[in-house]
Design a protein around this nucleic acid. Structure first.
Lengths: 138, 138
DNA sequence: TTCCTTATTGCAACTTTTTGCAATAGTATG
DNA sequence: CATACTATTGCAAAAAGTTGCAATAAGGAA
């Protein structure tokens, strides 16, 4: 259940600490497959840990993203949502109805390689949001 | 020079209006190839049109994006920047130094087709930001 | 030109996100 | 167990972005 436990060693290994706040936030992310906005995370987390602040939620989400424990993803509005990091995948979201689906990284991999050789960049983020129209809306 | 003039008919054709505010904002975008944040746009635009407000800048940028006259793009922070819409291209930005380069849509096109047939979605946005490490930083 | 319709703007209040700094609390060491 | 080091948090204030609504003004019609 408490899937956040498994992250403790990952943090410790890098010199970071597992705190009640990080625990609560990881817990929230783990138990919600989908992307959550910082405000949504806060609203969930505050139930477990009444003293947590919005500031901490913002900072922790950014921290988790930097350390690869959470994926940040662009939501329609241009704001960021966060999701626990599991398998490499991307998102397709419908501009019309908002319907979201995951796409395996395998589909995108060859294009990444093409981009890398054309540009000289090394592509690090395998969690991109593409926008379009879903089968119902198009 | 006044490249914003050419957009008047595009707006009119859709029942929208060309106003001094839109004129100023388009002017700012035209004369800056790169992405600008709403605040940057405001700071430029206010020089030409001292009465313009931040509210209007935010709303206008969103309006221009919806109507295809400007491309919104995710900047490193996750915030949106805007750029005048010209050729279809994508962006590669370096997570380390922030260096940005444009990538022609042609490189991405076949992957778009693959995604479309795999998902049933029709991909509408041809202005995606990919993150990685540039040749110097990697 | 004048009038009319309604797209657009500005204002003000509000929500969301960020930042600096002092206080707190994990973790390691003696 | 006590101490020191510093990662992390909370607070308060600032900055950035959003929303509702009344006032304004662009463009078409008379």
């Amino acid at each position: 259940m408490s899937c956040s436990e498994e992250y403790t060693p990952q943090l410790r290994a890098r010199g970071y600490r597992m705190t009640p706040q990080r625990h609560a936030i990881l817990h929230v992310l783990c138990h919600s497959g989908i992307h959550l906005s910082p405000t949504q995370v806060y609203q969930q987390a505050v139930k477990e840990l009444p003293d947590i602040t919005e500031t901490t939620v913002y900072r922790t989400l950014e921290f988790l993203a930097e350390n690869g424990l959470a994926y940040p993803a662009h939501m329609g509005s241009g704001h960021l949502g966060y999701q626990i990091a599991r398998n490499d995948h991307h998102h397709l979201v419908c501009r019309n109805c908002g319907k979201e689906m995951e796409v395996d990284h395998a589909l995108v991999k060859s294009m990444y390689q093409k981009l890398e050789s054309a540009s000289g960049y090394k592509l690090t983020d395998s969690h991109v949001t593409f926008f379009g129209l879903c089968s119902n809306c198009k």
